[in-house]
């Protein structure tokens, strides 16, 4: 509870859009995405009762999430893994949510390629992340943190987003049919 309060207070603070606060809010969003997205069972190793958020980037950012590590989500224990900057395929694919910091933009293509069709919810910051095959990208609009969603990519690997999340997204990339509308 205390952790949540902390997260919420962080999110509250996030309104201020300071760089540290921005990370904190992103960490909170990252955590909350778990509640608004459905990750297929095949993503989980057999008998593995953990749900893993992998962080490609700084230890610091991973540390922001340590407050919620161990909490139970859908009977799974939340594990926060700091994957460093060069994580190999299996460790990448072992995650259910993978966050890539914006400064690692160069690796985005390789990582997304390694992941291929693995059911891993990929969250990024960099521009063109969604076009490269990412699923959710944080954007800041008028000092307010928002996100975009590539539903097409997510659908391909079997990840479903809740409508409430989709409604809150500033942009949603739909299937080909829908592309014309975008």
């Amino acid at each position: 509870m205390g952790v949540l309060l902390a997260v919420l207070s962080l999110s509250w603070l996030c309104q201020g859009a300071e760089p540290d606060l921005e990370h904190r809010i992103k960490a909170a969003f990252l955590y909350k995405f778990l509640f608004f997205a459905e990750i297929p069972e095949k993503s989980f190793a057999a008998d593995d009762k953990t749900i893993v958020i992998g962080i490609l980037g700084s230890e610091k950012f991973a540390g922001l999430l340590q407050g919620v590590a161990g909490s139970r989500i859908n009977d799974r224990r939340l594990e926060i893994r700091s994957l460093g900057e060069n994580a190999d395929g299996p460790s990448l694919r072992a995650c259910q949510v993978l966050f890539m910091e914006a400064r690692l933009r160069s690796q985005e293509a390789r990582v997304l390629q390694v992941l291929g069709d693995s059911p891993v919810l990929t969250v990024g910051e960099s521009e063109g992340f969604l076009q490269r095959g990412g699923m959710v990208r944080f954007v800041t609009i008028k000092e307010r943190l928002a996100f975009e969603i590539n539903r097409k990519t997510a659908n391909r690997v079997g990840i479903r987003f809740r409508s409430k999340l989709l409604r809150l997204a500033v942009r949603v990339i739909e299937e080909a049919k829908r592309n014309g509308q975008d």
């Binding site: 996030c14 309104q15 909350k32 809150l168």
Partner: peptide, 10 residues
């Protein structure tokens, strides 16, 4: 209906 809005401060 508000859970999302409240969660993501919208």
């Amino acid at each position: 209906n508000c859970i999302g809005a409240l969660s993501f401060r919208d």
